[in-house]
Simulated scan of single mutants.
Amino acid sequence: MQLVVRVFAGLSDALGASTVTIDIHGETLTGAELKELLSRAYPAAGGLIRTAFIAKNQAYASDSDLLFVTDEIAVIPPVSGGQQEPALRSSVVDESLGLHRITTSPLTADEVSVKVADDEHGASLVFIGTTRRTTLGQRTVLLEYEAYVPMALKTLQQISDEIRSRWPGSLTAISHRIGTVPVGETSVVIAVSTPHRADCYEASRYAIERLKEIVPIWKKEVWEDGSQWKGPQSGPWNPMRTT
């Protein structure tokens, strides 16, 4: 039997494709077995494969979970929150789920903040993430973002559900741009509104930190003299960590 696997960002670069096909014995295998097969087939990418997580039907799965040939399987390298996958580079992407949006179009704060307007809320905050000129002494030309779009939208919804559970009555809307984002332009807008301001500050910070932890969006920094995929900036990456 054959299992079709989607790969992204630096892993896609290393394997030379955005999808790979692996021969398996039978109709199932575990996530750990899939990573072992991939590591044998692509030994130069073994280190990145071993630190990746498996996604099964657009949700993170553990290494012990069974994967079936009928499942939608992806290998998710550490997210940063890349470069757009080859199939999307010349395409327009604009997909939404509830209050959340993934798009190749420019973003504005107003179009996101209006989604969380509520007469019962006394506080609202808008976080805007932009491409900065210099990072650790290196001059940035632009950023390129890639997303596993359907799963990214689901995990954005997960974040707003977590925020609503922690801060009852809150509303959260998140829009993220993919593709090329030049210096000074916006890559992400997060709008949060709550009945009280203290909750709003905390919920807004929670949203961006959680986005960088679990949403399958990758960032590639392009400099004047090179480029690099950026993984998590602090500590080991574990998108299945409970909050």
Results as ranks from 00 to 15, higher is better:
Phe127Cys: 06
Arg132Gln: 07
Gly122Gln: 02
Leu3Phe: 01
Leu107Asn: 05
Phe8Pro: 00
Ala87Asn: 03
Val141Met: 06
Ser175Leu: 05
Ala109Glu: 04
Arg166Pro: 10
Asp225Asn: 10
Leu48Ala: 14
Glu33Ile: 00
Pro78Ser: 06
Leu34Ala: 11
Lys115Asp: 00
Thr140Met: 10
Glu213Ile: 07
Ala203Cys: 01
Thr130Cys: 09
Val188Thr: 11
His100Pro: 04
Lys115Leu: 15
Cys200Glu: 01
Ile49Ser: 04
Tyr145Trp: 06
Arg101Gln: 14
Ala9Gln: 08
Pro106Gln: 13
Val215Gln: 08
Gly226Leu: 10
Pro43Ser: 08
Ser124Glu: 00
Glu185Leu: 06
Thr28Gly: 02
Ser193His: 09
Leu15Lys: 02
Thr242Phe: 12
Ala117Gln: 12
Ile163His: 04
Val69His: 03
Arg177His: 07
Ala123Leu: 02
Pro182Gly: 10
Trp223Asp: 04
Ala52Pro: 02
Glu185Gly: 00
Ser80Gln: 02
Asp71Asn: 11
Gly46His: 06
Val126Trp: 01
Glu95Pro: 06
Ala123His: 05
Glu27Trp: 02
Gln2Lys: 03
Gly82His: 07
Ala198Met: 12
Ala45Met: 08
Ser90Arg: 13
Ala109Gln: 13
Glu202Lys: 13
Thr30Asn: 06
Phe8Arg: 01
Trp167Gln: 00
Ser80Glu: 01
Ser165Lys: 15
Asp119Ile: 10
Val112Met: 09
Thr51Met: 15
Ile159Trp: 03
Ile217Phe: 06
Asp94Trp: 09
Asp118Phe: 04
Val181Phe: 02
Tyr42His: 15
Val149Ala: 02
Ser160Phe: 02
Trp229Met: 00
Asp161Lys: 07
Tyr145Thr: 09
Thr180Pro: 06
Ser165Asn: 12
Val93Pro: 04
Glu33Leu: 01
Gln228Ser: 11
Gln138Ser: 05
Leu88Arg: 09
Glu162Lys: 12
His25Arg: 14
Val183Lys: 09
Ser62Thr: 11
Glu221Thr: 11
Asp110Gly: 03
Gln157Ser: 12
Arg139Asn: 01
Ser90Tyr: 12
Leu142His: 03
Gly46Pro: 04
Val5His: 03
Arg241Gln: 15
Ser105Arg: 15
Leu66Arg: 14
Pro182His: 04
Val112Gly: 08
Glu185Gln: 09
Pro236Cys: 05
Phe68Glu: 11
Pro236Thr: 13
His196Ser: 02
Gln157Ala: 09
Ile208Tyr: 10
Ala41Leu: 12
Gln158Asn: 14
Cys200Met: 08
Ser91Lys: 13
Gln83Asp: 14
Thr104Ala: 05
His176Asp: 01
Pro232Ala: 03
Pro232Gly: 07
Ala32Asn: 13
Leu11Gly: 07
Thr19Gln: 11
Asp119Tyr: 04
